[in-house]
């Protein structure tokens, strides 16, 4: 059977692209880097837009990246139903590009946070989370200064009504409250999908919690979910 193909974008300032390449690779998939100036993808099943500081975060996080040649191809791929996952800066790029609603704002306390964070899996009805249990509490690291998810009330209601909130910040017991919210995100949102459920954006880094040498391996299930979903359709 042919391998699942991951394309990992690299912008000037991306710094999680090698982790995002490494994890699919050690899991037996094919992975390719795609440079931001490229105008074609390499026949992907899944695209990862990795974390980092694309174009130095100038203007707004992700604002310049959305104009890059490769993002026009990513938008076409997503609109055809292709799987896209944006992690951290990748999530910011997805909202700036209009592939996901809302925006990522500066953390409420203005500090850069880098730590392990519990999140609750709020929806398992996605290609990215189908092997988790609903309400499963997982430990996935976060590392950001501009990760406070914001959307207006109407948009929030639409996310809630359509089961688009995939991850919420919580404590180790799965309690979702202000105390467990690291950055001031509205409704403790850590990750969402689009209405068609093929585009995921999340601030936590599953690629930093997916191999045995690191303390949490809770991100493995996300990659396993993607692989299962794609294999069923190959």
């Amino acid at each position: 059977m042919s391998k699942i193909r991951f394309n990992v974008l690299t912008f000037p300032g991306s710094n999680c692209d090698h982790d995002s390449y490494w994890i699919p690779t050690i899991r037996g998939n094919n992975a390719e880097f795609i440079w931001h100036k490229d105008s074609y993808l390499k026949d992907p099943d899944v695209i990862i837009i990795p974390g980092g500081f694309s174009y130095g975060d100038y203007l707004r996080c992700g604002a310049i990246a959305k104009f890059s040649p490769i993002m026009q191809e990513v938008i076409k791929f997503a609109n055809k139903g292709g799987l896209v996952i944006g992690i951290c800066n990748g999530f910011q790029i997805l909202t700036e590009s209009g592939l996901l609603p809302g925006a990522l704002m500066m953390n409420k306390h203005l500090q850069f946070i880098c730590k392990h964070q519990y999140i609750s899996v709020e929806s398992t009805d996605t290609p990215f989370t189908n092997l988790y249990e609903k309400k499963q509490v997982i430990d996935i690291p976060i590392a950001h200064k501009e990760g406070s998810y914001y959307i207006d009330n109407e948009g929030l209601k639409s996310l809630q009504d359509n089961d688009q909130i995939v991850f919420r910040y919580c404590n180790e017991h799965g309690q979702i409250d202000l105390e467990a919210n690291p950055n001031g995100a509205i409704d403790n949102i850590a990750g969402i999908v689009n209405q068609k459920r093929n585009v995921l954006g999340m601030m936590p880094h599953p690629e930093r919690a997916s191999e045995s040498i690191v303390s949490s391996q809770d991100g493995k299930t996300l990659f396993a979910s993607i692989e299962k979903w794609v294999k069923e359709r190959l």
């Binding site: 203007l59 604002a63 104009f67 909202t95 700036e96 609603p101 925006a103 914001y150 959307i151």
Partner: peptide, 8 residues
């Protein structure tokens, strides 16, 4: 299109 994010 560029300088402002209409969401925020």
């Amino acid at each position: 299109k560029v300088l402002a994010n209409p969401n925020t």
